[in-house]
Simulated scan of single mutants.
Amino acid sequence: MLRYLIINKTIQNLENNLLGVQFLRWRRKPRWLPVAKSKEFRIPERPKQSEEEKLELMRLHNQYRTQMRSVRSYLIKEWEANKQKTTSDHVYITPEEAEKEFQMRMQLNNEWNKTISIEREEKLRIELKAKEELIKNKLENAEYYIERKREQAREEVLEQIELAKTFITRENLEAKIEEILANPVNHNFCVDLEKNIHREMDKN
């Protein structure tokens, strides 16, 4: 009865914590249950090995340890050889020689800096010249655009002045009326299929 209650309680807890998990039916005792009290203090009997099996295992263990010892010894010798080789490559120099080499490298560095400075100045000069040319072209284009706009405005003003001569003002109103009455214009006309224009005949 107690076992049944423990199993149900465990399953309920797992179902609450692990939603969507499908449980399988165990044929034997589930893993999450504790050891039975009747088997809690039982000491399992140690399996007995035959003499031949024991000798074979000893031989394999000795062979493994011998091989590993050989590999470690080889790696240690290789590391020591590389260490000695690396140490022998270093050349010890006196402080005077180090100062002399430092001054030589500083002189070489200064020469490189001068060369790079000259190249940089030449590059900046070329870029400045190109920028000046670009600004000059833009100014010329702007002046041409402004002059063109002025010319167009001047032409429009002259055209409007010429058109103003034909405007009807208070002074020439009577003369324009008499001119219109003397020269009537009939705008009624039609066009046939042959593109001939037929104007309306005067009723008078």
Rank of each mutant, 00 (worst) to 15 (best):
A81N: 08
A142P: 03
I76Y: 05
D89K: 15
A130W: 02
Q152E: 14
Y4A: 11
V35C: 10
K100F: 09
K9D: 14
I135Q: 13
A175E: 15
I197E: 07
P44V: 11
K131E: 02
V157D: 07
K48S: 03
P47T: 06
M104A: 15
E119N: 09
Q22H: 14
T10R: 06
S88T: 12
M1R: 07
R31N: 09
I180V: 14
E132T: 03
E111P: 04
P184G: 04
E132H: 07
E159V: 00
N82H: 06
L158F: 06
I118P: 00
P47N: 04
P44W: 14
L173K: 08
I197S: 05
R3N: 13
N8K: 11
R170C: 06
N82V: 04
V157I: 07
E40Y: 14
K136V: 00
R69W: 07
H198K: 07
T115K: 15
T115E: 15
E122L: 06
P47E: 05
A153C: 06
E127G: 00
L173I: 08
I177R: 04
E97P: 03
Y64A: 12
K54T: 15
E122T: 01
S70E: 15
R154E: 09
R105E: 03
E194Q: 09
Q160M: 08
G20A: 02
N196T: 13
T66H: 05
A182C: 07
I146V: 12
S117Q: 10
V35F: 10
R170T: 06
K77L: 08
R65Y: 10
E200H: 02
E143T: 05
D89F: 07
D89W: 07
S50R: 01
E127F: 00
Q152G: 04
E56L: 10
E162A: 13
R59W: 04
I126D: 15
E121N: 12
R59P: 01
K77Q: 09
